[in-house]
Amino acid sequence: MHHSPFTTSRTGAGGGTAVETQTIGMELALSQLLSRFDDTEKSIIGVHGLGGMGKTTLLKTPNNELKENTRDYHVVIMIEVANSETLNVVDMQKIIANRLGLPWNESETERERSTFLRRALRRKKFVVLLDDVWKKFQLADVGIPTPSSDNGCKLIVASRSNQVCVEMGDKEPMEMPCLNENESLRLFRSNLMAEVSAAIDHDSDMRESAMDIIQSCGGLPLALNVVGCALACSMDAVEWKQAARAMRAILVEDQSLE
């Protein structure tokens, strides 16, 4: 039977699951990523979506799971690329060298290090997760060998741009799905104190304001978390109405800019 190298449900404290607690409403995205990861013919996996969609959280799940389960891969490396202007090759090389337990030589050039790191990684079955990639870059320039079905290695690329994912090697990248209304409500409530969350069920004004806020967030996990944390301890219906109005204003402004 095929063994999946990482799972989407691991028992955690409090009776729930550790992964589920961190990724409320992201079950569909996790399932899609897992399916692509398990495809032995797919070595490069692209994930694209708007900022605030939860791409970083999504990548952290296999990153954390695979680090604990070393049976399938020798090394798992997650790197925040953030190359909106320039590619910080040295910082990326330091992360790779650190994960491989290799010495760092300041006198080496980027090219010398990339050759050294590629040679070291070729002896490993690896998974590299690249988060927040803004522009295409050559893996070899950093020191990452190209994953393939022959070497069994994997590369996961997260970007706001579908085109960047394509240029990095995934011709059909997956799009991060927005949270639906029920998922949005679950995530929003997870940030609230228990008594505040309960008030949504029996206070019609707070319920109405909560649904207004959720609709205004447009299914974006980051927005839902920010507003949820801001209202975590508030039982003031007026404050909730103000938050709902503020979110509606932001939504209108965003739509006018499109």
Score class of each variant (00 low, 15 high):
225 N>P: 00
143 G>P: 05
3 H>M: 12
46 G>E: 03
29 A>L: 11
44 I>H: 08
169 G>I: 03
108 E>N: 12
166 V>Q: 14
245 R>Q: 13
200 I>E: 07
17 T>D: 15
49 G>T: 10
9 S>Q: 12
157 V>L: 06
165 C>F: 10
254 D>N: 14
205 D>K: 10
166 V>Y: 08
71 R>Q: 13
218 G>K: 01
213 I>Q: 05
23 T>K: 06
238 V>E: 15
252 V>H: 10
132 D>E: 11
15 G>P: 09
179 L>R: 03
120 A>D: 05
10 R>A: 05
5 P>C: 04
216 S>D: 11
63 N>P: 00
184 S>I: 04
97 A>I: 03
87 L>C: 08
13 A>E: 13
61 T>E: 14
51 G>R: 05
172 E>P: 00
243 A>C: 14
139 L>H: 04
251 L>M: 08
65 E>F: 01
89 V>L: 12
20 E>F: 06
226 V>D: 08
190 S>N: 06
77 I>H: 02
189 R>Q: 14
85 E>K: 10
197 S>R: 11
234 S>W: 07
204 S>H: 09
66 L>G: 02
196 V>C: 07
143 G>L: 01
162 N>K: 15
141 D>N: 10
187 L>H: 02
202 H>R: 14
133 V>P: 04
171 K>R: 12
61 T>M: 15
145 P>E: 03
243 A>H: 08
29 A>P: 13
4 S>C: 05
206 M>H: 03
45 I>C: 10
115 T>H: 14
130 L>T: 02
154 K>A: 05
231 L>Q: 06
136 K>R: 12
238 V>C: 13
234 S>Y: 07
143 G>R: 01
39 D>A: 14
192 L>A: 02
248 R>M: 08
64 N>G: 07
199 A>L: 12
115 T>L: 15
59 L>H: 00
175 E>W: 00
161 S>R: 03
174 M>T: 09
